[in-house]
Simulated scan of single mutants.
Amino acid sequence: MKVYKLETVQHLNATIEECWDFFSSPKNLQTITPKDMTFEIQDYDGKRMYPGQVITYTLKPLLGIKINWMTIITVSEENKYFVDEQRFGPYALWHHKHFFEPTENGTKMTDIVHYALPLGFLGRIMNTLVVKNKLKTIFDYRRNTIDGLFKAKT
């Protein structure tokens, strides 16, 4: 299985507490997901993020095809980091680490995603032709949305 890595870094003009308050609430996922993906949370307990929390949602990432996705928060340390992993969904592997570090001017946020696609050789072709670019588009949208929300500094 071929594992890919996507890493982004963003500097936000906000305190680490303000960033954590936003990102530790699963309901804000919809805000930072492109509208054309029709992201909808189906079930979560309404609580702030904690290890063991399960979040289920539907979305339409490609060609308007609706998929179900289940994520579990595997680890979380307030104001520092959390990890979400796909338990059910389109990927053979989805492991997403979120780090928050205080800086002189606010907060440095780093996302590191390791992912793999099913179907072996066909999955590698799909990554090259579609998935890699789609993920870049999604994370660019997130960057721009978060910039607007937190007035990020470049």
Results as ranks from 00 to 15, higher is better:
residue 83 V to A: 00
residue 74 T to I: 05
residue 86 Q to C: 05
residue 48 R to D: 12
residue 115 Y to C: 04
residue 95 H to P: 05
residue 71 T to A: 14
residue 49 M to Y: 04
residue 43 D to Q: 12
residue 78 E to K: 15
residue 99 F to A: 02
residue 55 I to S: 02
residue 77 E to G: 01
residue 43 D to V: 03
residue 105 N to K: 15
residue 104 E to V: 09
residue 81 Y to L: 04
residue 74 T to E: 06
residue 116 A to C: 05
residue 87 R to D: 05
residue 81 Y to F: 15
residue 95 H to G: 02
residue 22 F to P: 01
residue 106 G to D: 05
residue 24 S to G: 11
residue 53 Q to G: 07
residue 98 H to E: 03
residue 25 S to L: 08
residue 50 Y to D: 06
residue 71 T to C: 11
residue 114 H to M: 07
residue 96 H to Y: 00
residue 51 P to D: 10
residue 31 T to L: 11
residue 97 K to H: 04
residue 82 F to K: 01
residue 71 T to S: 15
residue 98 H to C: 03
residue 104 E to P: 00
residue 39 F to R: 06
residue 92 A to I: 06
residue 132 K to L: 05
residue 80 K to H: 13
residue 100 F to E: 01
residue 126 M to E: 01
residue 82 F to W: 04
residue 71 T to G: 03
residue 114 H to K: 12
residue 22 F to L: 07
residue 26 P to I: 03
residue 107 T to I: 10
residue 89 G to H: 11
residue 23 F to Y: 06
residue 39 F to W: 08
residue 122 L to N: 09
residue 108 K to S: 13
residue 34 P to R: 12
residue 88 F to M: 14
residue 124 R to H: 14
residue 26 P to R: 04
residue 97 K to W: 00
residue 29 L to V: 02
residue 54 V to M: 10
residue 66 K to D: 07
residue 54 V to Q: 08
residue 81 Y to K: 12
residue 107 T to E: 08
residue 111 D to F: 02
residue 124 R to F: 13
residue 107 T to R: 02
residue 70 M to R: 15
residue 61 P to T: 11
residue 56 T to E: 11
residue 102 P to M: 11
residue 109 M to S: 02
residue 58 T to I: 13
residue 25 S to R: 12
residue 73 I to Q: 02
residue 61 P to M: 07
